[in-house]
Design a protein around this nucleic acid. Structure first.
Lengths: 205, 205
DNA sequence: TTCGATATCGTGTAAAAACATGATATTTGT
DNA sequence: ACAAATATCATGTTTTTACACGATATCGAA
């Protein structure tokens, strides 16, 4: 019985590339692709693949959030994260949200096929480069911040000062200050400049 | 006479995707691909394509720098920039460095073919999305900053305070302050947080 | 060669952020 | 139901940034 594959990626070249690579595989059935999160969910509502190749950057929603939603609704679908960035924080989040594997977009045909076979067998598959990254930076975690902290963080990045943030969120300036210091502490940085730089690197703003 | 195409991109899926899309085109000759800047230059040393599809992010060198080098050495090669990011600053830089076109990686087969035909005819081709971006943000230019200002900017982003920056660069804190205020003014922002966010977006840090 | 941009330094003030200490209500997960 | 995490608020001090006004030396391009 052929393995049913579906892919969600907004880069048509990537979709076409994978399709072309998998075309020659006899035991793989290509179900199609979606270019955004919404149409991916719509497709899954109709029919479910065995393996879903999921891009980490979608126009309407992050692949990380989408991954979580899909696993909640369709726990039987095996998800393989797909990304250009070999960034440990992404890999970790995808795995935390239920992904079974993670491959980079510079993967070879063999790597893709192995990834699919691995997750079908219940194993976890990480691109060689990705797993090296995980081992190397396992202490450089992406901080876990709360919703409110993220809101404050984004307003800080937009250049608002505490008073303005307080007014916007209908809270007192001291509360904003508390969130601020909590962010500095969680990111383990000394000041706002460093905080914003890291937040940008983690794609939080 | 067939148009000779070469592609430099470290994402194998993208290479494969484009190859697959162009396979059916009769008047296009696929010369091959390179996965990094060095092997791209090595190939060009042997033979030259008519059109080079050049990724903006290469492991060993930015596509923007590579574009400039190639046009200096082989001005007759037509270069089409290739990128996942629809970011005005990249597009602009590629064009300044001699590229004839710019397409996003979510481009369709038709778009790629049009791009190749356009540049062969001496026209400039911009992905519809990319050209919209250029028109929209033509006043939101990337600020021109001096070498010294960039140094200071990067140290600010690393979390250093004026006194530390001053010591590192062997200048007084007032000078650092002057550069700082000049940066705020050039970026047209009110505070450091906003400055660093923009600098990160422009890939300056 | 002359002008404009760059880089440097100073004094002083007001605003904002960083940090400490402490406290209470609410939400969330087990 | 209960503990832990989250969100909220207050007061006060020190450090850092933002900004004003001013000034001099250098260097490169017109």
């Amino acid at each position: 019985m052929a393995i049913k594959i579906f892919i969600a990626d907004d880069h048509y070249m990537v979709v076409e590339g994978i399709r072309s690579m998998l075309l020659q595989e006899k035991n793989i059935e290509w179900m199609g692709h979606a270019m955004n999160a919404a149409s991916c969910m719509a497709f899954l509502h109709q029919q479910q693949p065995d393996v879903l190749l999921l891009d980490i950057n979608m126009p309407d929603k992050s692949g990380i959030d989408l991954c979580k939603e899909i696993k909640e609704k369709y726990p039987e679908i095996l998800i393989i994260g797909l990304s250009s960035f070999n960034q440990q924080s992404y890999i970790q989040k995808m795995m935390q949200n239920g992904a079974s594997g993670y491959v980079l977009k510079n993967a070879s045909r063999e790597e893709i096929v192995s990834a699919i076979e691995s997750v079908i067998n219940g194993d976890t598959f990480l691109s060689s480069e990705a797993s090296v990254t995980m081992r190397e930076n396992k202490d450089a975690q992406i901080p876990v911040i709360t919703r409110r902290e993220k809101e404050v963080l984004q307003l800080i990045a937009e250049g608002l000062i505490n008073k303005e943030i307080a007014e916007k969120l209908f809270i007192s300036t001291t509360t904003v200050d508390t969130h601020r210091n909590s962010l500095l502490s969680k990111f383990d940085v000394k000041n706002t400049a460093n905080l914003i730089k890291l937040a940008a690197q983690y794609n939080l703003i």
